[in-house]
Lab assay of single mutants.
Amino acid sequence: MAAGGDHGSPDSYRSPLASRYASPEMCFVFSDRYKFRTWRQLWLWLAEAEQTLGLPITDEQIQEMKSNLENIDFKMAAEEEKRLRHDVMAHVHTFGHCCPKAAGIIHLGATSCYVGDNTDLIILRNALDLLLPKLARVISRLADFAKERASLPTLGFTHFQPAQLTTVGKRCCLWIQDLCMDLQNLKRVRDDLRFRGVKGTTGTQASFLQLFEGDDHKVEQLDKMVTEKAGFKRAFIITGQTYTRKVDIEVLSVLASLGASVHKICTDIRLLANLKEMEEPFEKQQIGSSAMPYKRNPMRSERCCSLARHLMTLVMDPLQTASVQWFERTLDDSANRRICLAEAFLTADTILNTLQNISEGLVVYPKVIERRIRQELPFMATENIIMAMVKAGGSRQDCHEKIRVLSQQAASVVKQEGGDNDLIERIQVDAYFSPIHSQLDHLLDPSSFTGRASQQVQRFLEEEVYPLLKPYESVMKVKAELCL
């Protein structure tokens, strides 16, 4: 049975990233139509530049190519590739079939990587351009969430054990800070992308030097003109047959890092959902379990974690691919890159769409948070109580021993009897502590235990987050809708 299948058929496997999760716009960027249309555009740009620099290419040939950029006979191309065992030459023939007058000058002087690699770089750039505003929107939604809850005390956790208090907004800023680093890295790697350009079979530009009869300047002009037509500021000066596969490492490393950030955020949300302090959106008709109707599973956060793990592992592909590119190139890269580049971007696209949807509907339960604080705060307040007693004339050592005994009794009630923490009640009825009984409410005010959390939130948002989001103001209103 021949390899390949009808990918629109229910009898043929289709990647869930495309069929179930990723956005239509990201799927289109990695589609065959987008790819092969870009090949034709690159052939047109090459012909236009070659004509401008004096090669015998007519206006009629150029116009014929322009008129057929979208006229792609995919069936013919597939048949040609089956016959020739070469995808680029299959599309040269297919393009030439609908451009008979231009057929002889299509791909003039070029090698397969002229269309293959340059198209990949265009796709990487455009895919990054799709991700950047999506990530900015996630940051914006979380920034709104953090600002609104900047002063809401909550129990902090280290080692997932109760620690000092923080605020809900401050905790959210930990998430935002990681995503801001990801946004900066995505922008950097996007701006650092260079075009492969017009380089020939081993990167020496020998074929173009021959076409222009040894004119170095025209060869350099050709490279520059096509690079500018493709919208790049610069091209690699040095290439082998391909652009260095280190570029793929750079791009997928940034995406993998984004995956790590999203995994951490969504894990926190899942843990908070278990504590009943916070939940992701839950639709009115949504079913959490087929057997347990009360369940409210954090399905979206779980999906993000599941896909983020996949995204983090994909960076190993370009690392290994770059390491086995012998001399000017081997074909070890080809099949692998067809999979890992598309999957990385479709996965990143999915987790950003999902995280935006989550961040637009996060639900906080202040009463649950308050109750958990009441359970733990008495123990945390013991040092403040000791200091207040010393100020009232008591002995630190005597007070410490009193607190120690009462704390152990209260802990026994919590752990052995399943009761509430009654340390404060014990202190309130103990005559030894009568000098500070009137101060206990103040000493137990949760806001006095959150330090500068709310001020940190305000400063972080104003100095770091809002300036970073400013270039994306025009796209901030787009909502994230999930079908599944």
Rank of each mutant, 00 (worst) to 15 (best):
V226A: 03
N118F: 00
A453C: 07
L46D: 11
G96S: 01
Q320F: 12
T267S: 12
D191A: 05
E79A: 09
R372G: 06
T158S: 00
S15K: 05
T158H: 01
P471D: 14
A256L: 14
A256T: 13
M76H: 06
C113T: 00
L179M: 14
G394E: 14
M312P: 09
N357T: 02
L209W: 08
H7Y: 04
L209D: 15
D441W: 04
Q409A: 05
T350E: 08
M389Q: 11
H91F: 13
S474Q: 06
I265E: 06
L482S: 13
Q285R: 04
P446H: 15
R188T: 08
T119F: 05
E220K: 07
Q416K: 08
D398A: 13
H400V: 01
L352W: 05
E383A: 11
G451L: 05
A3M: 15
Q177N: 03
S334V: 08
G4W: 01
C180H: 00
L84S: 06
L314A: 10
L258D: 07
R270L: 10
T382N: 14
Q356S: 00
N384A: 12
H217E: 02
F30L: 09
R234L: 02
Y114H: 00
G96Y: 02
A143Q: 05
L131T: 03
L55V: 08
C305W: 07
G419P: 00
S438N: 14
V413S: 13
D59Q: 07
L179D: 00
K82D: 07
M389R: 00
N126G: 07
S67T: 00
E401G: 04
I424K: 14
N185V: 04
E343G: 11
S306T: 03
D129E: 00
D191F: 07
A335R: 09
L440N: 12
F145V: 00
K246Q: 11
I122R: 09
G259P: 00
G104V: 06
V368K: 06
A453S: 12
F345L: 11
I237W: 11
D430T: 15
C113L: 11
G419C: 04
C180G: 07
N336I: 10
S9M: 13
Y466V: 13
A335M: 00
V198S: 02
R372E: 09
C340Q: 09
L135E: 13
Q161L: 10
A3V: 14
H7P: 09
H310Q: 12
R20Y: 14
D223Q: 15
M316E: 13
F449N: 02
A260E: 02
D59K: 13
F28G: 03
D182L: 05
T111A: 07
L152R: 04
T382K: 06
V247T: 04
F282V: 15
K470W: 08
S23N: 06
A273P: 01
R188F: 10
C98Y: 06
L108M: 03
R83C: 06
P293G: 10
L362I: 11
I358Q: 00
I287H: 06
K391Y: 03
P378T: 11
A411R: 07
T158A: 10
T227D: 02
R329W: 02
L423P: 13
F236N: 11
V226R: 06
E228Q: 14
L341D: 06
K82Q: 10
V324Y: 06
S9W: 14
T201W: 04
D32L: 11
E401K: 13
L319M: 12
D11R: 06
A381S: 15
L17M: 13
M380Q: 15
D87N: 01
G5E: 09
R303P: 09
I72M: 04
E473W: 12
N185H: 10
G197T: 00
K75G: 00
A77H: 15
H107F: 00
P153V: 02
N274Q: 07
I72V: 04
D87F: 05
I265N: 13
V315T: 09
W326Q: 05
R296H: 12
Q184I: 09
G393R: 10
A47R: 10
P318D: 00
L468N: 10
D317K: 03
H400P: 07
S253I: 15
P133F: 03
T111S: 01
D332I: 00
K224N: 00
S474D: 09
D6N: 14
G203E: 02
V457P: 07
S289L: 00
G156I: 07
E328S: 08
V168A: 10
T58W: 12
R296I: 00
I269M: 04
A308L: 12
M89S: 09
T313H: 13
R14I: 13
W39H: 12
L258R: 08
H217Q: 00
K246E: 09
P366I: 15
P153K: 10
E280V: 03
D32Q: 06
Q41P: 13
L406N: 07
A291N: 12
M225V: 13
A291R: 02
V219M: 14
L311A: 14
S447F: 00
T450K: 15
E60Q: 06
E283G: 07
M292Q: 11
T201K: 07
Q241F: 00
L271K: 02
C266P: 15
F195I: 09
P471M: 02
A3N: 03
V429L: 13
C99Y: 01
T158K: 15
F379Q: 03
S323W: 08
K170Q: 11
S412N: 14
Q63I: 04
L314G: 04
E343K: 12
M225A: 04
A22E: 10
I369T: 09
T354D: 06
V168H: 15
Q397L: 13
D129F: 13
V413H: 11
T201L: 01
T111F: 04
R190I: 10
Q205L: 01
A381L: 09
V363W: 04
R404G: 10
C99W: 02
T94S: 01
D182K: 13
M181Q: 15
P471W: 10
L468T: 07
A127S: 06
V247S: 03
D144P: 10
K295A: 07
G203M: 04
K75E: 05
H437Y: 05
V364I: 01
L55Y: 05
V189Q: 15
R20T: 14
L130S: 03
P471S: 09
I176S: 06
T350M: 05
Y294R: 13
A150T: 13
N71T: 07
G288C: 02
Q320C: 14
V92P: 04
S290L: 06
R37W: 04
E220S: 04
G231Q: 03
